[in-house]
């Protein structure tokens, strides 16, 4: 009679709380770039929300950093399978930025300096689920990690958390952004392993 030794295959990933399927833990902060790192002087930085009717709301750096900010501790999950748990950020909630914006749109396109884009449903930016972060681990956000400011949408794969963010366009219909147009999933839920189109 054989004895089945459970757990002989090593520690199962699913046994680590907070780690979505197919992910592994890292304590580093890997950098993925699809182009040169933009260096944006703070006096030339701005963030603009454009509604589906073309109405614009804009903040320069001074105005943006004067908004109420929040310290958040979140887990982040990259589609290339690394996850970093308990990362600490400071940023402005999208609830704050969108509070005065009049829109009936359901979708958004996030825009960055350098031309990067990524699409996110509007409801995924609301109710304390998304921030524009400008500090990481208590320090100013470095350019290689998206500084001066990046999107932080921790419940979606991290390509949705666009680096060097400079705007948000509200849209009536969903459209693919930079990676989505090249085969990645339109939504990108790490708990459902929505990595590529059709997943």
């Amino acid at each position: 009679m054989g004895i089945i030794s459970r757990g002989f295959g090593g520690r199962r990933r699913e046994s680590i709380p907070g780690l979505p399927p197919g992910q592994y833990l890292t304590h580093d902060f890997p950098v993925l770039s699809a182009g040169p790192t933009p260096r944006i002087p703070l006096d030339r930085w701005s963030f603009t929300i454009t509604t589906e009717t073309g109405a614009k709301s804009s903040w320069n750096w001074t105005e943006f950093t004067a908004l109420t900010s929040e310290d958040v501790t979140v887990d982040i999950h990259c589609v290339t399978k690394w996850s970093k748990l308990g990362s600490t950020w400071r940023g402005v909630s999208l609830d704050t930025l969108l509070a005065e914006v009049d829109t009936a749109a359901d979708y958004t396109m996030v825009h960055s300096f350098g031309g990067y884009t990524t699409n996110v449903p509007l409801e995924d930016l609301l109710d304390s689920k998304a921030w524009i972060a400008y500090k990481f681990d208590g320090e100013d956000l470095e350019p290689e990690h998206g500084g001066p400011a990046r999107m932080l949408i921790p419940h979606l794969y991290f390509w949705k958390s666009a680096k060097w963010v400079n705007g948000l366009t509200l849209m009536n219909e969903d459209e693919p952004g930079f990676w989505e147009a090249a085969g990645y999933h339109m939504y990108g839920d790490p708990w459902l392993e929505q990595r590529y189109q059709g997943d």
Partner: peptide, 22 residues
């Protein structure tokens, strides 16, 4: 710009993205 998400080939003249391979 070859990275784990995919390969991004940019024009050496204007830096626009010419090809992406995922």
């Amino acid at each position: 710009w070859g990275q784990e998400m995919g390969q991004v080939g940019r024009c050496p003249h204007c830096t626009d993205v010419v090809v992406r391979v995922v």
